[in-house]
Structures are given as C-alpha cells and as structure tokens.
C-alpha cells in the first residue's frame, strides 16, 4: 500500500531526471545548463496546467453558470453579471424540485452499498485467500465479472427486482450496486490479505485466537488503508451509477444522476438550477479526489493492474 500511497509527492523523477542528465552531458557548449533545466520545468508546468484545466472545462463552466442569474445565462455564455446563489437555494428545495430527495437517495444507496460490499467481501475474501474457500475460482470469477458489460444484467435485474418487489426502492438499488462493485472489492481485498505476513496469523493462533478473532482483531486493523480505499471507490461508483438507476427506479428511489439527466432532457430547462444541482452532486467525488487522493490512486491503479 505504502508504495503507491503518496504517488503525487514521491519523486523518483526517473525518465525526467535521466533526460536532464543526458542533456547536461551533451550540452558542454551551451552555458548555464542549470537555467535551461529550470526553464524546462516551467514549460512542464505550463503544459500540464493547460491539460489539467482543459479536462475540467465542463465542470468549471457548470460552476460559473450556477452562479449566474437567469437573465445573464440567457444573454449568452460570455455575458457575466452579478453572481447569485439563488440556483443553489432552488436546487436545495426552495423551488420545490425533487433534488433534495435525489441527494438523499444517492447517499443512502452509496452508503448501503459500501456497507453490504464490506460485509460480504471481507469475510469471504479472507476465507478465499487464507482458508482455501473456493480456491482460485473466486478471484478469477471476480475478474471475469468485472469485464462483462453491465448492460447484460439490465434485463435480468429488472425481472429479478420486480419479482422481489424491489423495483424503485433504495434496497433494490443497494443490492444492484453491491453486485456491480463486489468484484472490485474482492480483487483489492485479495491483494491486501495476500500482503499480510502469514506469521502474524500463526502467532495469534499460537496465542489461542480463533479464526474469527484473528480476522477481526489482527487483520482488519492492518488492512484499514485497503478498507478505506475500497469504501471510497465503492461509494463513488455507486453514487455515480446511472444505468441501473435508469432501469430499476422510476421515482421513489431515483438518485441524483438520473434525476439531473431527466431534468435536462425535459423541455424548458432551467440551466442555472440544473448547473447548481450538478455541481452539488459532483462534490462528494471531487472532495474525495482532493482529500482521499492516496486511497483513490492506490485503489484505482491496484484494481486496474490486478483486476
């Protein structure tokens, strides 16, 4: 975990450094290689900065529109006037939209999925890695499931949830998102359990601890960073789900992704209000990107490489 934890701050600087050194070696004629290196770093800042801004233009644009008055919005994208917070008040309930309920649904679905994924994945992955439960099959099936397109499960899940009476309910969407995220959780936890030295468990066993006790008191504290990474990723992916929300919910359990998209496809769009609602609904994932970055990076890259 620690090897990937703070990727952004670590400075191996490999290719860049070797490039700089190679340049230093070959530039005996040009005076002041130090200054040229310095200048190149600022060019890097500029180039990366431009890319970092461009990929976030949609979000910045929505942020700006969300603070413009309806009149300023209708005068065109380049017209700026006095900023207003009306749209945030509207989307949080003042205008009678359903957005507060959509936010609540998204939150319950995402938290429910995190809890259920951990409840299922932690004990069974431990059993699979250390106790021989299912052998390799569980790890391989998890990888395979992650590769199959989610749309395959749209029709069967619709039929299943309607048979169970869980269509358009929060528990139904919690179950669907648990299904969607379980493979990733098992893959990440599998890598985590494998990295714990088995001597720790053997020592605990000699001390008379039961298997359950070892899992709960010895392994879970050690695996806390992995558990956080899994929780953050499952929360974000569940919060972001759209396809299963579209298939399985119609009004009561609608999460914010579906609510916002429906709003924008309907006629007479209130762009200011929808922008405010959209910015608000991107906040949890964006805040995670800022404050839980090391968990995201380690989880995403480990999940990518290992699963």
């Amino acid at each position: 975990m620690s090897s990937t934890a703070n990727i952004s701050t670590r400075t191996p600087d490999q290719l860049g450094a070797s490039r700089a050194k190679a340049a230093d070696n070959s530039t005996g004629k040009t005076p002041g290689p130090h200054r040229s290196k310095h200048r190149r770093l600022w060019w890097t800042t500029l180039a990366v900065g431009v890319v970092a801004v461009i990929v976030n233009v949609p979000w910045f644009n929505a942020l700006i529109v969300s603070f413009k008055s309806d009149g300023d919005i209708s005068r065109g994208a380049l017209a700026l006037g006095h900023p207003t917070t009306d749209h945030y008040a509207n989307s949080l309930g003042a205008a009678g939209y359903d957005f507060p309920r959509f936010f609540l649904n998204s939150g319950m679905i995402a938290l429910g999925a995190v809890a259920l994924v951990l409840l299922i994945a932690v004990p069974s992955t431990y059993a699979a890695i250390r106790l021989g439960f299912g052998g390799r099959f569980i790890m391989n099936a998890s990888s395979a499931l992650r590769l199959l397109p989610a749309i395959f499960f749209a029709v069967p899940y619709f039929l299943l949830m309607s048979n169970l009476g869980l269509l358009d309910t929060v528990p139904g969407l919690i179950l669907a998102n648990t299904f969607l995220n379980l493979p990733l959780a098992i893959i990440l936890l599998g890598a985590g359990f494998r990295d714990v030295p088995i001597e720790l468990e053997e020592a605990a066993q000699v001390d008379g601890a039961s298997t359950y006790r070892i899992l709960y008191s010895v392994l879970l504290p050690i695996l806390a960073p992995t558990l956080v990474a899994v929780s953050v990723l499952v929360f974000i992916f569940s919060w972001n789900d759209y396809l299963f929300a579209l298939v399985l919910s119609s009004s009561n359990a609608t999460p914010i992704t579906l609510g916002a998209a429906n709003f924008v496809t309907s006629t007479g769009i209130r762009w200011g209000d929808i922008s405010a609602a959209t910015v608000l609904s991107t906040l949890p994932p964006v805040l995670f990107a800022v404050f839980a970055q090391r968990f995201l990076v380690s989880g995403l890259s480990a999940g990518a490489v290992k699963g």
Binding site: W239, T278, A289
Partner: peptide
C-alpha cells in the same frame, strides 16, 4: 510529462483526477 518534479505538480495531479471521479451521466449533463 508528469514524471518529474515541477512547480504546481500536486495541484495539477489532483485536477487531473477529477474527471475520473465525476459520474459520466453528470458529465453528459455538463
């Protein structure tokens, strides 16, 4: 390009992560 130290690296790294985190459906709206 990012594989070296340069001024502003941490901020830009965070900014580059943001699009991955945003729901594709909300990206569609934006």
């Amino acid at each position: 390009l990012m594989n070296r130290q340069f001024p502003g690296k941490r901020v830009f790294f965070t900014m580059l992560l943001v699009p991955i985190m945003i729901a594709p459906a909300l990206m569609g709206v934006m």
